[in-house]
Amino acid sequence: MAKTTLTKKINLYGWLFVIPAALFIFILNFYPMVSAFLLSLQTGRGNNLKFAGLKNYARLFQDEMFLTSVGNVITYLVIQVPVMLLLALVLASILNNPKLKGRGIFRTLIFLPCATSLVSSAMIFKSFFSIDGIVNTTLMGLGVLQSPMSWLTHPIWAKFVIILTITWRWTGYNTVFYLAGLQNIDRSVYEAARIDGASASRQFFSITIPLLKPVILLTTIMSTNGTLQLFDEVRNITNGGPGIATLSISQYIYNLSFMYNPQFGYAAAVSYAILVMVAVLSFIQIKVGDKR
């Protein structure tokens, strides 16, 4: 009898330990998620809202700005994520070689960009590519450009600068994951492949990539989520411009909610679009990752 009360008491403590954290997540994550959905069914300006059914969702498909922002984000996604992940994979497999001299230093320098904030990296790259910035000065000095190039007001080059900034900031971060994954692969697998005469690139495609599949899947999902929610870089490098050529979905939600006359209901509908995209893309990636 005494024993059961003791187990009961211990079990009670278990719940006591987990409940504060769970409550915070319920109140600050799940509850707002539900309330965002309810909000998305209302229209109006400021706090003057009334029920409108699915009107906001219908509006999404006719909203030029929303469709452009989705297109922009997808452009960032399909160009930036594969390039960055491939670069990170190559770097990780080079750094994993125990015979490499100066391995520690190379590793530290490649991880280094993780130590800075997105805002700081955005500001530095914005300075690089500003009209009177160092990139223009250098290219003109080398004779590549005759007159300064307006990178940040050109719809394609502005996207390029944003993609470059994200790649700079996150490649080392993903390399950390791949290196950790590679350290779990038995080195004898590579030894055997080398004895069999497999080239370095053959080893990369036939051993490294298949064995790292779970980590590749994880980093792909993380990068996809991050890019779909892109905000800091776009807002600070181009502020969505020129026009809306670089606008991201998160920035559009921000603009709808906190600039001019707030349209909370419609902003919530746009935010649900991100939620659905994150869910759908993650699901596809998990399915594709499982099949291979």
């Binding site: 600050l28 994550n29 509850y31 309330s35 965002a36 921000y254 909610s257 906190f258």
Partner: peptide
């Protein structure tokens, strides 16, 4: 909750 993007929460969180 790890799958919920912050962008989807910011409007209701701000209002709360």
């Amino acid at each position: 909750s790890m799958m919920v993007p912050f962008a989807a929460l910011m409007v209701p969180l701000f209002r709360m």
